[in-house]
Design a protein around this nucleic acid. Structure first.
Length: 479
DNA sequence: TTAGGGTTAG
């Protein structure tokens, strides 16, 4: 341990190494600090609740907890366990300092009521503390997590008041908060005024535009970032790739892929999975498979992504082969999402029996309880195969209420496989329930049109107009 | 003397 001349505060009393009459006491303190350092180092990694409780108890019995510095270490380590635990500990502090307040505010940002942190902010001001950049970063996290635009603006004013508005960390946090609250103009203005920027601040502003669907503006900034001498972080690349996958921007996705290869970046889980998503969404399933094969490490998300890609590109059997490979060769444990992909693959390949077996396997072998989405897949599996009665039986026996998606799957099956009257009856009941999903109306109107009941078709279409229900136009994401 | 900004994936 170092014998720093820095005063150590125990019970509020400062001792200095320069004070000779306290030499025996200092020796004792040295021993105490050695023990303390050893204990603090045990807290520096991720403690288990049991370890935490042991150290907490030791601090209480030894009286060490009366030191705010020691209490702060305990407070910090409690954040690895639960924000509620941190807040309880904070409430028990007799003399919290700014550090303690900051940790408590940070913990509140991770709870379901982040804006309670403003009461702590007020309290620290009343106690005469001067908030620092940490305080504002954590408070802004609270605003971002609760989409509190007004409070974000109030903090902006406080930052100006405390002379911290142009610093890197607080500006980046603030522009992120503005972005989260949809205030892209404010975010951009702030970014524009920043005297110094980092690749994180570039990433934050690009992410703001990209997450709001403004791919071109994001890309413009992406180019500008290179010109300013900054390189994108993985987070920035993945944000752009995600939007490319969503919007079917194959050329941009390919250019990003080219950049990743040229700059020698490792195709990690995030980047690899995003590329698989783009290529499979754009119909280039072969390239998606090549990307998957070139990934040095695969996890459940990358496997799931390719299983879905194969299924929706009409390679149901290959998707099931990958599922088996995932379990046996890659030793990756499937999750609930994997089974959604597997069930969809069975539906597209018409493998009803296999699908039912996988549905059983999911809970029996992996302990995954089927969700509404899994039941939806089974209804669709039976429905598309013309087994309408089995599909109805699933709906009758499932432990939760069916949603619109499940009803629409059943209506479609009725229409496709000749159960027209049943489909009409269900669509009519669905509409009577006051559903605002356009599918029920469209299916019923189609059913009437097939039977040349055009007066009824007009009636349904009029109802849709009056209730302002619009059919979502079809679109293709392939290029 | 302890903390920090963006974090993205079926």
């Amino acid at each position: 341990m170092s014998h720093s001349p820095c005063p150590i505060f125990l019970s509020g009393e400062p001792f200095s190494s320069q004070d000779h009459k306290h030499e025996p006491l200092l020796l004792l303190l040295s021993l105490l600090m050695a023990t303390l350092n050893s204990l603090l180092s045990r807290l520096s990694s991720y403690p288990t609740l049991h370890q935490f409780d042991q150290i907490h108890a030791h601090y209480i019995t030894s009286g060490l907890l009366r030191s705010t510095f020691v209490a702060n270490h305990l407070l910090k380590s409690s954040t690895f366990l639960s924000p509620d635990l941190t807040l309880v500990l904070f409430s028990q502090l007799d003399y919290p300092d700014l550090f303690s307040y900051n940790i408590a505010i940070k913990s509140l940002s991770q709870t379901s009521h982040p804006l309670k942190s403003f009461a702590l902010y007020l309290s620290l001001l009343i106690r005469g503390f001067h908030p620092n950049e940490y305080t504002f970063c954590f408070l802004l996290d609270c605003c971002s997590n609760s989409l509190a635009h007004l409070q974000g603006r109030q903090l902006h004013a406080q930052l100006i008041k405390h002379g911290l508005n142009l610093t890197m960390f607080s500006s980046t946090s603030l522009l992120h908060t503005y972005g989260c609250c949809g205030s892209l103009h404010d975010a951009y203005q702030l970014f524009d005024e920043m005297p110094i920027r980092s690749n994180v601040s570039w990433g934050a502003i690009i992410n703001n535009f990209v997450t709001h669907g403004e791919l071109l503006r994001g890309l413009k900034l992406f180019t500008l970032m290179f010109r300013s001498g900054f390189s994108p972080t993985n987070a920035t690349l993945v944000a752009i790739l995600c939007l490319c996958a969503k919007q079917g921007e194959l050329d941009i996705g390919r250019a990003m892929h080219g950049y990743i290869v040229a700059s020698g970046l490792e195709l990690n889980m995030m980047l690899g999975t995003s590329l698989i998503d783009i290529y499979s969404n754009c119909g280039l399933i072969g390239t998606a498979m090549e990307v998957f094969a070139s990934m040095p490490v695969k996890n459940v998300a990358s496997c799931n992504c390719l299983i879905f890609g194969l299924a929706k590109n009409g390679h149901g059997v290959k998707a099931l082969e990958l599922f088996e490979q995932m379990k046996q060769e890659l030793k990756v444990r499937p999750n609930g999402v994997t089974f959604l992909g597997v069930l969809q693959a069975c539906t597209y390949a018409g493998l009803v029996e296999n699908g039912v077996q996988y549905f059983i396997q999911m809970s029996r072998d992996y302990g995954i309880m089927p969700s509404l989405k899994h039941y939806g897949c089974i209804v669709d599996l039976y429905g598309k195969a013309g087994k309408v009665k089995e599909a109805m039986e699933v709906i009758r026996t499932m432990p939760m209420n069916p949603d619109n998606v499940i009803w629409v799957a059943l209506f479609s099956a009725c229409r496709t496989h000749g159960y027209r009257e049943l489909g009409e009856l269900m669509s009519a009941s669905f509409i009577k329930l006051g559903a605002d999903d356009s599918c029920g109306y469209i299916l019923l109107s189609d059913a009437y049109a097939i039977r040349k009941r055009f007066d009824d078709v007009i009636c349904i279409r009029r109802m849709m107009r009056e209730m302002d229900i619009k059919k979502v136009p079809g679109f293709s994401s392939t290029c």
